[in-house]
Design a binder for these strands. Structure first.
Lengths: 225, 225
DNA sequence: TAGATTGTTAATCGATTAACAATC
DNA sequence: TAGATTGTTAATCGATTAACAATC
């Protein structure tokens, strides 16, 4: 019913903004800016300054200074630490199709602390191949191999109809967190984390908003340009 | 048409759940289930039944019937209509790298109402090529071609450092909604819709949650300084 | 000091959940 | 009718914003 074990320092919504701050701070670093205030950050990212201050309060190891704001390098470092971008998360990938290949080869993910150690696919033409130095194994090896690798994050990039099966195998192999790119929700035992990367949702969202907007504007044609 | 009124009844958060209902209803259809109640939907998707009823109230053209629930086929159709999955949204893609190729070739997007009509890239080796029947043009042609195609959605799948430039060109070409896959927020004029597909955020989210969980389970260490 | 910017407490806003009457 | 399930109104919860005192 009620979860008492809330993260004390940082709200869930905060977490989704931290990578934004991280990116922005990174750009300031490059430009050699030494200090930045919450209101400057807020302006640049279209947020409320109080919100920024609250978010940062839970992350920064050093409080911001009145009249100066936050030290860019320090804050950048703290964000990096907090987000785990410096300590690599090891993960296994299941499904080496277009999307899987993308995840295997995109450098940005490595920078963000994601290290895919191994991939699995059921296509035997791929078995034994390496993509970006990562070996591809048959899916049958999953339950045998994953526990030995001691990896805790699994990425599902297989078609919808295979997602649940793969998910079950990952869980059986000791995986604790699943990044799911299949367009279907997964059934998992309690305690297993699932993050659904639902592009359908995003797309629906954008397309809906656009239609609403166009409709609205059509209804107000008398307004001038 | 009462579409506009309908839309206004639906909360922003509702919108993010509709594709979930749509997917679930689709599976019920396949199984030949004629009726479904809000509580069954809620159970399957881990939601509150009242929330489901509220969401559906804004979408369904026919109210649910006491003792029976909702007619699956009808509701499925209404969701499809509402989400615009039957009426294709035309879009242009900029950036034919790994991700761009994925978007061009993945069938699911077509099913979800996204129709990419043309792609742009700066690599001249790609110019004139077709991927999944979509022609690739030089980016220089954007401002000339897009207005003539009368397309209103643009997809940005270029590297971070080119995202803003591309964005500006899209806006100049009359694009009203942007689906941004670059890991950087975009500066756009008021009135232009932007949906950021920030995988970094999702990943940070999942990795954070996992670390919290492991920490909590291990001992509740105080790692703040 | 004076002024900018911080962090905290209180008020507001929006979304979810609870309670319940209506209905087939 | 009796019971399941609906849709609505009220209460609760969580996140954001406003107000403001503290501080360098």
């Amino acid at each position: 019913m009620k979860q008492r074990e809330q993260s004390l320092l940082v709200m869930k919504s905060t977490l989704s903004r931290l990578p934004l701050y991280y990116g922005y701070l990174g750009r300031l670093m490059q430009d050699g800016v030494p200090f930045v205030s919450s209101s400057v950050i807020a302006d640049s990212l279209n947020l409320n300054p109080v919100l920024v201050r609250k978010d940062l309060a839970g992350v920064s190891s050093v409080p911001g200074r009145p009249r100066q704001g936050f030290e860019v390098a320090q804050l950048y470092h703290d964000l990096e630490e907090f987000l785990g971008y410096n300590s690599k998360d090891e993960a296994v990938l299941v499904g080496v199709g277009n999307l899987g290949r993308l995840l295997l080869t995109t450098k940005s993910f490595e920078r963000l602390g994601l290290n895919i150690v191994t991939a699995f696919d059921k296509d035997e033409n791929l078995h034994g191949l390496k993509i970006n130095d990562k070996m591809i194994f048959p899916v049958e090896k999953m339950t045998n191999l994953i526990p030995r690798l001691n990896v805790k994050i699994g990425i599902i990039a297989v078609p919808e109809d295979q997602a649940q099966t793969v998910c079950d195998q990952l869980v059986a192999s000791g995986i604790l967190a699943i990044w799911n790119f299949a367009f279907t929700p997964l059934d998992v035992p309690k305690g297993i984390l699932v993050k659904n990367e639902n592009l359908a949702m995003s797309l629906a969202n954008l397309s809906m908003q656009l239609r609403n907007k166009l409709l609205y504007e059509n209804n107000n044609l008398e307004s001038h340009q």
